[in-house]
């Protein structure tokens, strides 16, 4: 069954306290090669039939209305993963907003 993957990240200009906490843990573990960490979310939506334009339009709408809050987050990617597991990037709808 095809899967549609929606990636959401906290807005770049906003503080990401979760990422800051992870960065702190990395530093404590001696991983000093990383200068920053940001934590986002990945949603996997499964559909029964083919992923056509209507489905993708619906996903873009859902991504903006429910999966993300445009005040604090950006939708950074929407992609389709087929049965074989290959990724097919569709668009970064955050750029459309």
């Amino acid at each position: 069954m095809p899967k549609i993957v929606v990636d959401v990240m906290p807005k770049a200009e906003l503080l990401d306290p979760q990422g800051k906490a992870v960065a702190g843990a990395l530093a404590r573990l001696g991983n000093d090669a990383f200068t920053g960490v940001r934590v986002g979310k990945r949603f996997e939506l499964t559909v029964d039939g083919p992923v056509d334009g209507d489905v993708l339009a619906a996903v873009r709408q859902i991504a903006d209305d429910l999966l993300s809050n445009s005040v604090i987050e950006d939708v950074v990617g929407i992609s389709v993963v087929d049965e074989t597991g290959t990724h097919d990037g569709v668009s970064a709808s955050g750029a459309l907003a």
Binding site: P10, L14, L15, P17, Q18, K20, A21, N69, V71, I72
Partner: peptide, 10 residues
Amino acid sequence: PGGLIRNDHG
């Protein structure tokens, strides 16, 4: 308007 995020001190 606006939004609420995790406290800055975590």
